[in-house]
Write a protein that binds this DNA or RNA. Structure first.
Lengths: 134, 134
DNA sequence: CTAATGTCTCTAGCAACTAGAGGTTCAAGA
DNA sequence: TCTTGAACCTCTAGTTGCTAGAGACATTAG
């Protein structure tokens, strides 16, 4: 049996976070000690490892909850969730790249150190001469 | 003079968001009508436009607050904030790309539709055969 | 047996909003 | 001038995924 601290050390999920996961119904201890401390079995560890890895892969907790509820043989649903996640990630990358381009342009817009108002600051304030919408 | 709704239409920032910005001290109306409604002048519009554009560029409100407090001639500070932001964005892109690679690998790991447990689901649960840390 | 560490519950806070309740004010048309 | 409907007001609470702290109790190593 694992204490909550054991689980934390083994999975890298912080103790208050594990309690939070319990609160929202993602994990549950097998039981409690006489002194009311949580005790977990191996499936608890496994489940938390799953959650941890899912979070590392950027899955929102609700998507993880859906995965946990799935029949392991339900290929279709599993694959769909994976694809959705991949779409999300690609979308975010695209948006961040547009942002990167914009920031580079803005940074380059000012060369001087003089008395004039910094054009970088001005560029932050106005969308006027941005390449596209963001 | 602009009402809060005018400002919202002109900047694309939602009305409750403008009130929220006021609450945290980012914008302020020039005054109020007899009936307690907010009224803004042109600088209010300009300031909110600045905030909006900064948000679009991914700047956290605290960074925007710092920019707003800056002397327009303070090139050094302005440039530093812009570079910080660019670093942040590049960092996020790098991490998302690692994630994308991992998700592609995971998605490809299962080909079948059979009776067996879906390896995509298994891959979500374990970091064992991931390319790197995430 | 004692001290140190771990754990318990509970509340509140973070960013950056969004939503809703319940009420008031404004502006335009009749 | 009156009325109606949209816009506005304040206040509270919810969102996501945690983190921090208070104050008390449990466990474990020496």
């Amino acid at each position: 049996m694992f204490s909550i601290g054991d689980l934390s050390r083994l999975t890298g999920v912080k103790v208050p976070t594990i309690r939070y996961y319990e609160q929202i119904g993602l994990v549950e201890p097998d039981g409690r000690t006489a002194g009311n401390q949580r005790r977990y079995g191996p499936e608890g560890l496994e489940r938390l490892t799953f959650i941890r890895h899912g979070r590392d892969l950027g899955l929102p907790l609700e998507r993880i909850r859906a995965l946990l509820a799935l029949d392991p043989k339900d290929h279709a649903s599993t694959h769909r969730i994976a694809e959705d996640q991949l779409d999300d990630v690609r979308d975010r990358i695209a948006r961040l790249k547009a942002l990167e381009r914009e920031l580079i342009r803005i940074s380059k817009s000012c060369t001087g150190e003089g008395e004039a108002e910094c054009s970088v600051l001005r560029a932050f304030g106005s969308h006027e001469d941005c390449a596209g919408p963001h």
